[in-house]
């Protein structure tokens, strides 16, 4: 079921912590978070404040998701070529 904005907001209020990291700190740590996820799977345990921020901040979360995809594709040597990406970008 699609959650309403009020339902999402109430969840965010519930999950609010007295102290949360800023978007800058999240950006600083997100590459470590992504690589920990890929290598050990315990990023949430090692960097819980990053996870908390990503759950609250949509723009940082979207960036994390793309970065995660890129890192996985690179690790698996499946990154598309520039030409492939340029063709997709023209669609």
């Amino acid at each position: 079921m699609m959650k309403t904005n009020l339902a999402k907001f109430v969840r965010h209020v519930h999950d609010t912590q007295d102290t949360e990291i800023s978007c800058s700190v999240c950006l600083d740590l997100v590459s470590q978070y992504v690589d920990l996820e890929i290598s050990t799977g315990d990023a949430t345990i090692q960097l819980p404040l990053v996870k908390q921020h990503l759950d609250q901040c949509l723009v940082c979360s979207e960036e994390y998701q793309v970065l995660h995809q890129l890192a996985v594709l690179e690790a698996e040597q499946r990154l598309p070529t520039d030409e492939e990406l340029m063709n997709q970008l023209k669609k």
Binding site: L27, S31, Q32, V34, D35, E62, V66, L70, A71
Partner: peptide
């Protein structure tokens, strides 16, 4: 504390989005 490329990509992703 991460791969250099992951560290660098985050700037590209951040700016592009």
């Amino acid at each position: 504390d991460s791969k250099f490329t992951t560290w660098a990509y985050k700037f590209g992703v951040n700016i592009a989005l």
